[in-house]
Amino acid sequence: MTHTGEGQAHPLDAPRFAGPVVQCQNLSVRYGKNLALKDVTAVFPAGAVGLLGPNGAGKSTLLKSLLGFIVPEKGTMKVIDMDVATSPLEIRERIGYMPESDSHIPGMNAVSFVAYCAQLSGLPATDAMQRAHEVLYYVGLGEARYRNIETYSTGMKQRIKLAQAIVHDPDLLFLDEPTNGMDPKGRDEMLELIHDLAHNKNVNLILSSHLLPDVEFTCDHVVVMDKGTVATYGPIKALKGTTGRVYEMRIKGDEAQFISVLRGEGFDVKDSDEDVMRVFVPGAAGDNPKVLFELAARERVQVRHVRPSVPTLEDVFARAVGEK
């Protein structure tokens, strides 16, 4: 059986799947005695969503469960409105997966490999070869496309993994630590590509990473995971901006004591290098740093520097993980 598209390429801005791309309900995954995911309930909206968390938080386990590689102990998962338990192949036909570890088909050059992956996803041989060339140029491997993949550098291997994931034009991309092992220039280029895919090519994607700047640069939404649970989720802008303000602060006096006082008042404090601390003042009180001066006066410490700071995803992450 074959099914046919419109016979020609869709315009890039044609809408893909617009509803929530992934829905998990009470998902638990166990590896032996270790519970890797604990009762995870989350909704991933369309667009670019970052799956953020430290190593071992359960990000890759979640992606592999969504791919149907791991059978959960309990819970349900839906990807592009299809149940993972009952329609895994239909789902995999419409998604692309870029795994974290080095992966390739041995003995192939780049263009054969990518064309082969396209054929495995159902594209006819001629279309697969044509798209393989295009996609390899897109990811910046055009000049190296006839080289055996085993001779590629780490950065090139990351790009070829992205190429095989997008060659069949998926509606949803799973990217697992896509910048792992890349040099700064390569990393920036990879992030540009991911950003371009999500924002100009209209590809929904879930980017799993422990690197906050990567997620902040490429994604609009974030799901923060920690120790197998969802710590927080939502649009990055909303998580960063609405509930308070971050101040950079430098003081003279007993810093440790002052930090504990701040924390006692319910403020989130991150002590950084060079005596500068980042203090998150939640709620409406955050609009005015007066409260910080009052506390400093009470504790008899000198305030040497206070400056409102733009909250970063790091603050969101620290707060979310800290709250747990």
Partner: peptide, 22 residues
């Protein structure tokens, strides 16, 4: 260069169950 490369695919796709032949 990446702006020139990627485009949507609107062609035919083989049905599920034929990958082993590939």
């Amino acid at each position: 260069i990446h702006d020139q490369g990627y485009r949507r695919y609107g062609g035919t796709r083989a049905g599920i169950g034929r990958s082993w032949q590939v």
